[in-house]
Amino acid sequence: MLATPGSLPSPAVEDLYAFEVKQDGQRATIYLPGDGTLRVRARGGTDITATYPELLPLAEALGGRPAVLDGEIVALDDQGHSDFERLQQRMGLAGSPAKAARMAARMPAHLMLFDVVHLGGRLLTKLPYAERRGLLENLGLAGPAWSTPAAITGHGGEAWETVRDAGLEGLIAKRLTSRYEPGVRSKNWLKIKVHRLADVVIGGWVPGRGRLTGLPGAVLVGERHDGLLHYAGSVGTGWSHAERTRLAALLKVAATGTCPFAKVPPVTGARWVLPRLVGEVRYTSRTRAGRLRHPSWHRLRPDLAPDGPHLT
């Protein structure tokens, strides 16, 4: 069951929802047949059991009681927050168990459990979320590499402020009466991302294709440190067609043959512009290298000088 992007439920209806922290990891279904074995499958059905050997002891946690659990595999940073950049170093190792074991020792993964869809031979998909959640919590699944993070009923506004102030990715709001709908992107589960704003300097662009031929498919943006423009990422969404057309005209005027970034970004087909245009973008978080994650264009900022914006 997948969540639909949405906005925070209003105070008038927030008591109809439970709120969970949105984890930034790899979605996984955990199959526990009750015979001391365990099978982990990714969202697309791929068997990724060998990728995460630290999860194997979970097979004994229910004492032979069969179950199918739903959760997110994450890698935690020093603050205990999920860090997808770290997890990427663990992914894709199912075909190399020895390397997966070495990586597990260096950068352990952690399974965040949030639902149970089968338990003790009983299919639970028709039960309401609140009842499934109660069954999950009663299992007491807390171990060295797995846990059952809290879900809060109501108080959505307070939960939102907490995740925003902590620098987390967002919330999942789940209607208490909702059934589990396998494979469905349901409006009963809402994915609410925290978006931050940043002022950036445009240093280049990449031509679009198809219906965007002749227009920028993405702009390459940066921030200034010590007088140098440092690459911060590529932004390719957020414009209307009219806005993209207007931006194309501005980029044409600012064209130059010299890359304005301190280091040339590894972007194929980039075209450079004089670093005169300042824009405001939305983004969710930053990589350790300072790149924007999930950036989306918001607006041009003609009121800001191109030597001043800094990302936050």
Rank of each mutant, 00 (worst) to 15 (best):
I202N: 00
D226I: 08
D199K: 05
V201P: 00
G203E: 02
H225C: 13
H225F: 15
R209H: 13
P207S: 02
G222Q: 09
V200M: 12
G210D: 13
G208E: 11
L215F: 05
A218L: 02
L197Y: 01
G214Y: 04
A198L: 01
G217T: 07
G208I: 10
R209N: 14
T213P: 01
P207M: 04
G214E: 14
R209M: 07
V200P: 00
G222D: 00
G214W: 05
W205I: 02
W205Y: 14
L197S: 12
D199R: 04
T213N: 10
R224K: 12
T213F: 03
A198F: 01
G222L: 12
A198V: 08
G204K: 01
L215K: 07
R196K: 05
P216I: 11
L220V: 11
R209A: 12
A218E: 10
G217L: 01
D226A: 15
R224C: 00
L212A: 15
T213W: 02
R209D: 04
L212D: 15
G208C: 09
W205N: 07
W205F: 10
L212C: 09
V219M: 06
E223A: 13
D226Q: 15
R211E: 15
G203Q: 01
R196Q: 15
V200Y: 05
L197Q: 10
A198S: 11
P216M: 09
V221H: 03
V201L: 01
R196N: 12
P216F: 06
E223Q: 13
V206Y: 03
L215T: 14
L197I: 00
A218T: 11
R209C: 02
V219Y: 08
V221L: 09
T213E: 11
H225K: 14
P216W: 08
A218H: 06
V206P: 00
G208Q: 09
T213Q: 11
R209I: 06
W205T: 03
G214M: 02
V206A: 03
V200D: 06
W205K: 06
D199E: 15
L220H: 05
